[in-house]
Amino acid sequence: MGHLSWIFVSTVLVNNFTLVMFLGLCSFFGVTGKIETAWRLGLANTFVLLLTAVSAWFLNAYVLKQTPFLRTIAFIVVIASAVQIVEMAVKKYLPVLFRQLGIYLPLITTNCAILGLALFQTSRNYTLVEALVFAVGAGLGLTLALSLMASIRERTELTDPPVVARRMGLVLVIASCLSMAFMGFAGMGSAE
């Protein structure tokens, strides 16, 4: 149990997917204009991460043992289909949420966090339970990073930065500060 909770804490805080491992930066910079969209996208990502973790584990256990060179292709196809299934299910059963997420739902396919999760889970030889905890941690970490960034950016909209910082410069420096804050957790794993 302690092992599992350590995987969870480590993924949410110490090795935060977005701020420390640089995964899923496109949505981190692209979709963090408003906090409501940000955390909703984070939760949608968490759901896809969970689906991916399960399917990647089954692929690794039963299919890719014989054909390891097909790993990248197999993962990306499975992720694309998982996203498509989620999209159809949301469209049918939760039409309101579907309208709110709009284009960001299909874009989850090209989010490196999803493929990154599958690859890290493979290289660390996680069991199914460990992989599930890893996926929930990664998803919550993403949601946390997206919401933090969105809340800061909502405030900076009212400020008057210099002309050169108006596009991405300011956002990148804010991200650097957030990442630095998360580096404060870096020592946590050394005792284990």
């Binding site: 640089f22 410069g169 990148l172 420096v173 991200a175 500060c177 990442s179 998360f182 580096m183």
Partner: peptide, 15 residues
């Protein structure tokens, strides 16, 4: 060399 340095370097380049 640490992760925040990556954001910082790209931020400076962008500025």
């Amino acid at each position: 060399m640490m992760p925040p340095g990556g954001f910082f370097t790209l931020g400076v380049a962008c500025l």
